[in-house]
Amino acid sequence: MSEKFEPIILGILCNWCSYAGADLAGTSRLKYPANIRIVRVMCSGRVEPTLVLKAFQEGADGVLVSGCHPGDCHYVDGNIKTLRRTPLISRLLNQIGIEPERFKQVWVSASEGEKFGKIVEQMVEEIRKVGPYQKKLGDKLDVVMHEVAQSAREAAAGSERRG
């Protein structure tokens, strides 16, 4: 199973450093796994926790947030916001049972194409080990529908008996 599993990682990258870095990795033909789907935002400071959670709700196996190194943010301190959020998001994800391997926040500059490729490679490897993201909560709709149907049958059987 594990050799077949190709995790889908949502990469949310700031326009000025990290997206340029990822772009450099592309143009210099550095290979990095195609598992990452990249969304470009103006600044990593834009990445609200709501977006990270939404990515998991929509079925991502992992989320990578990347911005300029502290001190280099195009908007001066957008990434300071990012670094304050990161430990809070990690704690929240941990509480709701999402493994730490699935969320990473990194700094990648415009010249760090190679570093970006390595980060993605490593993240793909780690998520392969933990497997596809499944909500631990058992809220897959078919499972629930099955339960509901079963309960309905029991209730029907019960009321027949009760007459």
Binding site: T50, R84, R85, L88
Partner: peptide, 24 residues
Amino acid sequence: SDQGAKLLNAIASIMDVKDEESAR
């Protein structure tokens, strides 16, 4: 839409820290 996530965001924006270690 997501009250908890939005609160995290509000809290993060008033944390008086500027580097990763102090944020942690």
